[in-house]
Nucleic acid binder design. Sequence first.
RNA 1: GCCCCCAUCGUCUAGUCUGGUCUAGGACACAGGCCUUUCAAGCCUGCGACAAGGGUUCGAAUCCCUUUGGGGGUACCA
Length: 509
Amino acid sequence: MSVRVRMAPSPTGEPHIGNVRTAVFNWLFARKMGGRFILRVEDTDRTRYQPETVEVMMDGLRWLGLNWDEGPGLEELQRMGIHPEAAAKYAVGGPCGPYIQSERLDQYREVAAELLERGWAYRCNCTPERLERVRQRQRANKELVMYDRHCRDLPPDTISPHEPHVIRLKVPLEGQTILHDVIKGDVVFENSGIDDQVLLKSDGFPTYHLAVVVDDHGMEITHVIRGDDWIPSTPKRVLIYQALGWQPPVYCHVPLVLATDGKKLGKRHGATSITQFREQGYLSEALFNFLTLVGWAPGGGEEQEIFGRDELIAAFDLFRVNKASAVFSYDKLDWMNGVYIRELAEEALLERLLPFWQRAGLVPDPCPDEERERLRLVVPLVQERLKRLGEVVEWTGFLFGEIEPPPADKLVGKKMTPQESLVALQQARARLAGVESFDAETLEALLRGLADELALKAGSLFGILRWAVTGQQVSPPLFGSLAALGREKTVARLEAAESVLAAAGQGNP
RNA sequence: GCCCCCAUCGUCUAGUCUGGUCUAGGACACAGGCCUUUCAAGCCUGCGACAAGGGUUCGAAUCCCUUUGGGGGUACCA
C-alpha cells in the first residue's frame, strides 16, 4: 500500500513553526516513500476560526517547497472566502474531497449515528455550567478531572434528538487501550482514566477526535505524523477505530519544538510564525534544511549538516526521529542561513535582496536598470556579512539618501592630530575628485598611495574615511562602498566631514 | 492533583536497539589566536556532557529498577 500522510492545520492563527517542522517531516516521508502528501483544513472550531490564515498557511507551505498532492479544490477554497486569484493558485483537489472539514459534516453525523447505534456513544445534554461545577468539585477533591458520565446510562429516549445536546464516546470502564507508536513504542492507558469525550458538538460540528478519525479513514491516511502533545488524547481515537471496526493508521508522534526557556515555543519567544521568518529574510531552503534537523539527524556517523532538498529526501528516516523534544536555536538558524546566503550566486542574491530594499523604501519598485547596476556592486560587499536578508537595510542604508555628518572626534585618526586628519580628508577628497575611474580597485591603489605619502598607517586613514563617508564605525569594505556610493556623493560627504572637523578645531585650538 | 512522554556539552546532535573499538565524535554559541581597511567570512586552538542512586555483567552512555528534573495533556480547542 502506498504511503499517504497529511498536514491538517486548523485555521485559528498564524502557522506556527513547530507545526511547520512536523509538516516537513510529513512531506519528507511522503517524498521518500513515493507517497502522497495531503493538505486538509480542520476548521471545526467555529469560535476561533480565522479564514485569512488558510491562505497564509498555504502560502507558507509553498514558499518552503512543501507542495501537496491533494488538498482543497478551487470551489472549496472560494467557498471559504478566499480571493479567486489566490484560490486558483492554491487549488489542488483530489479524489478524497472535500478537504475542508466544514464541508464534510454529513459524514461525521453519519458516523456519530452509527456509534450511537452500536452502543459506543450516547447523547448528553449537560450544560456547560454543570460541567464546570463538576470539574471544580473534582479539582477540589483532587480527583481525576473528567466528565462524570451523568448522561451515560440514561434510558434511551430521555434526550430527544431534537433538543440541544452533544454526543459523547462511551469509553469502556475497564481494560486498557494501547497506542502503538513507531517512535515512542507502545503506550498503555487505563480505560478508567479516559474521558467520555464529546464527539459531536451541539452546533452540529464534530470535535477534532471524531473528525480526524473519519477523515483519516476516508482519505486512507496510512501514517499519522504529528506532535507528541497529541499522545494523551490518542487512546480516544484508537477506541473510535475499534468501535467502527476500522484499521487505525500507523502513529508517529514526533517531539515538540521548544523555546530557549524550555517551554513550548510561543509568540513572546521571538519569531514563531513562518511568515515572520520569511519577512526577516531567512531563505526558504535554509529554513527547510534547519527544520529538518530539529528532532532528526542522519546518524550513521554522518556529520554533514548542510543538505540539499534531494539529499534530505534520500537521507530522511522517519523511524530515526528523536523521542526528546528539541529547543529551537535561532543562533544556529542564523548561521545556517548565512551559509546559504554565501552560497548564492551574486545575481540570485540581488534578486532576493531587492524586495527588502524596496520594502524599506530605499529602492524603487520596479527597480530601474541603472540602480540595478549599482546594486550589483553592493551585493558582493554584503554577501558574507548577512545572516538574514533583512539586515541588508542596515548594512547599506548609507548608500541611499543623506547621512548624518559624523561627530568630529570620530574623524580624527588613530595617533593623528585633528589638523593631520583634516589634511588627510582634504587630500583624499582632492584625489577622489580627480581620479579617472571610480572603481574599487583604482580607489584602493589611490588611497593606499595617499597613506604612504602622508606617512599614515593605512588603517588610520581608512578609518576616518569610513566615518566620513558612511557615518558609521562599521561598514562594508571601504573601497567597494565608495564605488557604489559614487564620486559625487563621496566628495560631498568628505567635504561635509571637513567642515565638521574645521569647526571643531576653531572652537578648541 | 491525576495521566502521559522525555533525559549525552549552554543548544542541536552522533553513539543506545546489536554492552567492550567512547580517556564520548560533530555542529551552533562562547573564549583566544591568525588573516585583515572596520565588521564579517575563513583557518587554528580552547572551553564544555553520559541527571542521581542502585542493580545485571569480566565490562554499561548503552540493559533493568528507583529517584530527581523537564515537558505535554487534563475543553461542546486543535
